[in-house]
Structure formats: C-alpha cells, structure tokens
C-alpha cells in the first residue's frame, strides 16, 4: 500500500519565495531599460525559468515528491526544448 507523507511548509519559507518572486519580477522590468540587443529575450527567459523553478519546487512540492514526478516534469521540459529546437530549424536556416 502506498503511504503518503504530508509536508507542511513553514510560513517563513513561503514568505521567502514571495520575496524572491517579487525581486525577480523587479529585475525583469529593470533589464528592459538596459540595451542588451540579442540577449534581451534570453535574459528575460532565464529569469522566468528561475521563477518557474522556485514555484515548481516550493509551491508545487516537487522537492518532496517521488522521482516519478521528477521524471514527468523532466520529460515535459525535454519536449519543450525539442519543440523550440525544431521550430528554430525553420527560423535559423531561412
């Protein structure tokens, strides 16, 4: 029989996550004022990825889950990367 452990995250951890997300949002807005030319989108995506990681691991409890869930999330990310790569096979070679 499968047993489940309940994880109660302390308020302090949630507060740190909130602060981190707000800070990263501030950084996202700030970097739009700097001319980084081709890197603009890459940096915005990088910051968004860090935010997504924080949400996935903390709010969505991925850091407490079994490896099966991590495999699923990894599979989704792999498919996402492949979709981007195949789409770029059009845009980069036109």
């Amino acid at each position: 029989m499968h047993t489940e452990t309940v994880h109660i995250t302390p308020y302090r951890a949630h507060a740190w996550v909130l602060i981190a997300l707000l800070a990263l949002t501030f950084v996202t807005i700030t970097v739009t004022w700097i001319d980084l030319s081709a890197l603009t989108v890459a940096i915005a995506l990088l910051i968004a990825s860090v935010k997504a990681y924080i949400v996935l691991t903390n709010f969505m409890h991925l850091k407490f889950e079994s490896s099966l869930f991590r495999v699923f999330v990894g599979m989704v990310l792999a498919i996402y990367v492949l979709v981007i790569l195949f789409t770029l096979s059009d845009y980069l070679f036109r």
Partner: peptide, 10 residues
Amino acid sequence: GMSATARWIF
C-alpha cells in the same frame, strides 16, 4: 515559406 532544412527534418 519554411526553411529547406526544416522541411527535410519534418
């Protein structure tokens, strides 16, 4: 109007 590379890959 896709690139030729993308066409053969797909």
